[in-house]
Every structure is written in structure tokens, then in C-alpha cells.
Design a binder for these strands. Sequence first.
DNA 1: AGCTCTTCCTGAAAGC
DNA 2: TGCTTTCAGGAAGAGC
Length: 298
Amino acid sequence: MPELPEVETVVRGLRDVLPGRSIVSIRLGKTDFIDDPVALGESLPGRRISSVERIGKFIHLQLAPNGSSHPEAASHLMVHLGMTGRLVVRAAKEPAPPHTHVYFELDDGRELRYTDIRRFGQMLVLPDAKLVELRERLGEDALNVSPEEFRRRLAGRRARIKALLLDQGVLRGVGNIYADESLWRARLHPARLAAKLSVQEVDRLRQMVQRVLGEAIRLRGSSISDFVDSDGQPGGYQKWHRVYAREGEPCYRCKTRIRRVIVAGRSSHFCPRCQPAPRSRRAGRAESRKARSRPRQG
DNA sequence: AGCTCTTCCTGAAAGC
DNA sequence: TGCTTTCAGGAAGAGC
């Protein structure tokens, strides 16, 4: 699933080819993931793409002002890849894969194509003011958040650390894979309450989040099911996953079998030895009861 | 405030 | 073998 490193990889690829190009025309397939398909179809043809940026997990295409622009004019195209979204540039004559729902014809004979099997993605066109609103409801970028800001955002929160890592209003860019990978490296159980983490633990977590994200960007993201970059190439970071999708396999540090539990409604992978469970009465009992009733041969 | 459940969607994999 | 059920998950909304 595309998280910060995957989106960053796509953005870097698009940045090589899109700025300066104009959108000639648009063709739409299914549109239920587009907030306003009519506005998209009407406001984009003829516009020039001036820049490509990442905002959390959103891809942001800035459109150069056209002659009659007023403050309400859509000048930003936002794309969220959801679970299975792909944004790829191809020669227009090349056949498109199934589930391709948006075709942006470019002025150089190529097409920017959006393909999304499950259509959990999002596509929206926004005027300046709405872009500001979107930015405001997202937290600090996970890659750049300072130690002080990270501490401040977790301070006093009674939620589980896993839930907060996934909350885009707290920190933007982290999803399920990189949350689990960061927590394993920081040796923190996903169900720990943020308010009960020590300053050292919070700082360590921030370091590990940024280290994991940085390494994943270097390897051009993780390809678990559908992710490819803007050239259609898979990433390589899945080879370095330490817990994600490794239930029952030995921990890379201590050989204990990796476990998977649901925390914050998400499957969470962790090492029960390196990442000790919090000492809360109910959770603690439920954990040990489960462990006893599920013996595994070793 | 924060948790769980539900919804959206499809294809892979498990179950029968 | 082949059909049916289950599961995965980003994000938002409902209800507790």
C-alpha cells in the first residue's frame, strides 16, 4: 500500500516529466473516487502543470494560472493512491491496464494515467483556500517532524501509539507497514499508550520512523501487492521488512515468533519479547489468555 | 477523548 | 474441481 515512501517515489518520478507539460484532454472511467468529476473534466484541459509535490500521502500537482483565474478557480489537483492506486506516465498509444479510470492526455504524446483496482483512492481539484484547509487538517510531515514537535503531539494522549502513528492529523505519511516497522525498531509495543512513553522512548520512536522512511525512500518504496512507481517499476524495501506480514516467523533480533494482533482496528505485527506489552489489567489478561490457548509447535 | 464497528471495493486465498 | 466465504486495508462517519 502506498505510504510516504511510495508516494515520495512516485512524486520524484513525476517531477522528472510533468512540470512544464500541459493537459490536453481528460477521459474518465468510473468516477466514484473523484469528489467532483465534472469540475475535474472542465477545469483541467488546457492547464499547464507547474510543480509536483508530496503532502503526506497526497500527490499534489500545482496548475499554472490560466488567463481568467480568480480565487475560486481550481489550481491544485490532489491524488491519494488509497490502497491500490497507481499514477503512471505512458505513451498514449500504449494499451492501458484494467481498472484505469483517469487518462490525462499530455502535450508530448504521453498520458498520465490513474489505475486503481479497489478505488479506495481519492482525486480532487481544489482552489487555493481549500488546499490551505487540507494542509491544516494534516499533521506534521513524518519525515521532517522535529523531536520537540513529535513530543508535543504525543504529549498527554491516552490513545495507543499505533493509532497515533496512523492518524494523519497527528503525523502525516505513516501507514500500517511503516508504523509496525518503526515500532519494532524502537522496541515499543503497538498498544502502549502514548502518554505513558518516556521521553527517551518517544525520541527513539521518532528516530526510527525517520530512519525507516528514509531507507524505504532510498529503495523506492515497498511493493506488497500493487505498488509501482511512475515508470511502473516495483520498489525494494519489502525485502527489509522486519515484522510486517511475518506472523509466526522468527524475530530478526531474538528469534521469537512474530505475532499479529489487532490494535486500533489494524493488524499489527510485533515481537512479543523485544516489544513487551503494556501492563494494563484488561489488555494484559486478554493477551496471556490468548497466548495460552493458542499453542504453536515450534 | 478514544474505541469499535461499518462502509467503500476487488482479487487472492482459504474453506467446504 | 468449483463455488462461496473471508480477508486485507486508508479514511471517514456513527455510536458508545
